[in-house]
Amino acid sequence: MTASSKPQIENLTTGSGKLQADTIARWLFQGAAFLVLAVLVWMTVVMAISAMPAISKFGFNFLIDKTWDPIQEQYGGLTFVFGTIASSFIAMLIAVPVGLGIAIFLTEDFLPENVLTPIAFMVELLAAIPSVVYGLWGIFVMAPFIRAFETWMNTNLGFIKIGDKSIFGTPYGPGLFSAGVLLSIMILPTIASISRDVLKAIPKSLRNASLALGATRWETIFRVMLPAASSGIIGACVLGLGRAIGETMAVTMVIGNTPQIDTSLFAPAYTISALLANEFAEANEPLHIGALFYAGLLLFAVTLIVNVFAEIFVRRVSSGRQ
């Protein structure tokens, strides 16, 4: 190239040094994003491999066997599966109606907006409180209340039985029911906040159309608003369910940690998450560790499925409303 005095005109098509930095940066961003996905795969692989000794020994019997006996090296997870399902079910039974009620209350104009906004924030704050703090509070404040309630139920409704065992049996305080109630408090903000967002996103015109036809407020809510928001509300509930299934510390602290399947709602029980929290640090035998990994893998798989479901439902809402 010959030196020339006329001003240089940059070639618009050649890559300059700046453009290379741009490319490198892009790879960096994309690489980080890839890493996040890799973590999920890594997680699955590590847990599956570590669970292998137990999977090959017990197979699917793990799911239907009630015995968990580290001394005999016999591991079955049924009691924990039962505790997880039962405590989550109780939590949903309470949190879904209450959470929906809150979501509706916060989207209607019963109170002025500047009162509702702080309330909505306070409901969200419930999600920020650490699980172990709920547990501490559950043991010392809630459980005594629950025991009083259980005693009352036992005296008055104790005659309701499955077979010859009462549904409202001996009041313990810590137990399945306490765990369910505490869980319901913890998943309440998930259900209430997301449902509220979904309800708020429903076009005002649908509401007006219903009112203009002579429907009352609650007829409008039940016949138009809730059906229109159903997909998102289901997503919110499924997300709440996922939280309840995986929640650990608070449950461990109030469920009584007894591996049994009892007909009584008030009896102590055990969940998969509590099992992991209590036994992992002390497990030494490879098969014991393997069985715990198996339980962990199970929990991982279930919450994964639940969350993918929730994701699909919530996504349908955001894509359906343009």
Partner: peptide, 16 residues
């Protein structure tokens, strides 16, 4: 009142 007075809005708003 609203039963006796129907209303049609600017944008069609059929229920889903």
């Amino acid at each position: 009142l609203r039963r006796r007075v129907g209303m049609v809005f600017q944008r069609p708003n059929p229920f889903p």
